[in-house]
Design a protein around this nucleic acid. Structure first.
Length: 240
DNA sequence: AAAGTCTTCAACCGCAACCAG
DNA sequence: ACTGGTTGCGGTTGAAGACTT
């Protein structure tokens, strides 16, 4: 990578070391977030304020989720992207523990590649299929979410369906209220698509944004695909 | 086993908005 | 109102590892 290692101002660039992470964490613990330019100056780090902020926000901040995006999260990403486009930071507010960078990367790797030549994709897909038994759904397939967006004057309606694994289904159902779901966002939409109790999950519910927007959600659970594989389906119809 | 290709993700850059003086 | 510094956002890049031939 050209220029990484040291910049013309003597600031380091490139991957962060464990020592730098510790310095930054320690500094933020003592002085709090914000004032990133002074973090860079006072913490002893030879990093730009921008770099410090980015490292904290995307990697060091407590409460960040690690690991794969779940089918539920994927559904929310698709749904909100259909609403707002590439407003990654806005979308990230609805996925606590996930960063805008993570969501942006996920979108690019999983959905942007639709732009690539179909032949190439088919070729790769075909060779991958050789590796697994016939009729067995791949992990990617099992995460597929189907979205249907319909716009009407003054209202936008979206439906999305996704298959989920049985243990994920149980895990979601066991949470009467998702721990992260209880917030409202500046733009007035209710922030917790999973903030439904079991009865409501099956019955649907209406929510009101703080700006008066009405957001109606209808949740459906149904088993589809191969019941022996313990796939269940979830879905919402969302009207904004 | 090796070389080529593809995917993932951390980190950078440029720009715009915001804020204090 | 203007200016310079700071912060946040979205787009892009490139290294590393996984996968395919």
């Amino acid at each position: 990578m050209v220029g990484w290692g040291a910049s013309d101002k003597g600031l380091r660039k490139g991957p962060w070391t464990h020592e730098e992470d510790e310095l930054l964490s320690e500094y933020v613990k003592l002085h709090g977030e914000g004032r990133w330019s002074s973090v860079a100056r006072c913490s002893g780090l030879s990093r730009s304020g921008k770099s410090c902020r980015l490292r904290w926000v995307n990697y060091l901040r407590p409460g960040l989720k690690r690991g794969q995006i779940t089918p539920q999260e994927e559904g929310i990403i698709i749904e909100l992207h259909a609403l707002w486009g590439n407003k990654w930071s806005t979308i990230a507010r609805y996925l606590p523990g996930r960063t805008d960078n993570e969501i942006k990367n996920y979108w690019r790797t999983h959905f942007k590649n639709k732009d690539k030549s179909p032949e190439k994709q088919e070729k790769r897909k075909g060779s991958r299929l050789k590796q697994k038994p016939e009729n067995q759904e791949s992990e990617e397939d099992s995460k597929r979410v189907d979205v249907n967006v319909q716009e009407q004057p003054g209202m936008q309606e979206m439906s999305f369906m996704y298959p989920i694994l049985w243990d994920q289904y149980l895990s979601v159902m066991s949470q009467n209220v998702a721990p992260w779901a209880d917030f409202t966002a500046d733009d007035g939409l209710y922030g917790g698509l999973w903030n439904l109790d079991v009865e409501q999950q099956h019955g649907g519910a209406d929510y009101h944004g703080t700006n008066g927007n009405k957001m109606a959600m209808q949740h459906q659970t149904t088993s589809f695909g191969d019941p022996n594989n313990h796939f269940y389906g979830g879905g919402y119809t969302l009207r904004v």
